[in-house]
């Protein structure tokens, strides 16, 4: 029983991390129709920027996280505005561009920081004990930030002009433009929000997991998994699916070991993609 609860708790904190990652990814797909292969790159970049701020500049960790968010958001904004925006309607071209950016980011980090993983530890140590159950404090913090980020993103999308403008552009670009909405102004902002979220995740999670130039690949795979499961482009779906993925992973590693859990999830995702691209929840999504 204790083992069961422990696994569930691990699953929930994994789910929180995955949700943070998946939100940005699904946002870009939902609004711009772009599959962002550089998502894992921004995650790594967030981690390294936060690490550098703490290790070289001596900034307190929370401030370092903010710097990481700002840096990744700024890079995302520039990339969208100057490169992606020119070809935003060509799905293969945008995919290749984000892939190219990912290779550049990861090689850049490799060149600057070397191939070894960094000594980057989460500053809040210790755990909450409740009888035989314990929850590391760092996981609680990540969970709290994740829930706050989901709430903030929801508010931006559904309660502000920017959000309305973005959703209008996603629904019908032509009509939205005829109404005076300017993709050149709004799309870079959406991209920056998404990459900022990836940077936030990196800054928060790499101290818990690990920080090395290879950590972007699995991040991308997990984002795919989560976002397809939740229905590409759907925010609520992605958030929910993230917790499903986290919990499945936690339980399968506790009870089965190995990668059976991941295999099952990927097969499920394959079938979903083919037979029900709207995901588990059946949200409407944009056409490819």
């Amino acid at each position: 029983m204790d083992q069961f609860i422990q696994a569930a708790l691990i699953g929930i904190s994994l789910g929180a991390q995955y949700a943070l990652l998946a939100l940005g990814f699904t946002l870009i797909f939902g609004i711009l129709g772009v599959v962002n292969f550089s998502h894992g790159g921004f995650y790594m970049l967030g981690g390294y920027v936060a690490y550098s701020c703490v290790a070289f500049l001596g900034l307190p960790y929370p401030l370092a996280v903010l710097v990481a968010v700002a840096a990744t958001a700024a890079l995302g904004w520039v990339f969208e505005l100057f490169l992606l925006e020119r070809l935003v309607d060509d799905h293969l071209a945008t995919l290749m561009l984000t892939l190219g950016l990912y290779l550049v980011i990861s090689t850049g980090l490799l060149t600057v920081f070397g191939p070894l993983s960094m000594e980057f530890a989460f500053p809040a140590k210790g755990a909450l004990h409740m009888g035989p159950i314990y929850v590391p404090r760092e996981n609680l913090i990540v969970l709290a930030v994740c829930l706050a980020a989901i709430a903030a993103l929801w508010l931006v999308l559904y309660r502000t002009d920017l959000g309305r403008g973005l959703r209008a552009l996603a629904d019908d670009r032509t009509v939205a433009m005829a109404q005076g909405l300017r993709p050149k102004l709004l799309f870079p902002l959406a991209f920056a929000i998404a990459t900022g979220l990836a940077g936030l995740t990196g800054a928060l999670v790499t101290p818990i997991l690990s920080l090395s130039p290879g950590v972007g690949d699995p991040v991308l795979a997990t984002s795919f998994l989560t976002v397809i499961l939740g229905g590409l482009g759907s925010l609520e779906g992605a958030a929910l699916a993230a917790f499903v993925v986290g919990i499945v992973e936690a339980f399968s590693s506790v009870y089965f070991g190995g990668s059976i859990g991941a295999l099952v999830l990927f097969v499920l995702v394959l079938l979903l993609l083919v037979f029900r691209p709207t995901g588990l929840l059946g949200r409407t999504v944009r056409g490819a």
Binding site: R167, A168, T174, T284
Partner: peptide, 11 residues
Amino acid sequence: RRVFPTMSVTD
């Protein structure tokens, strides 16, 4: 007409 189909009437 081309209303934005996924957005609410108010939005």
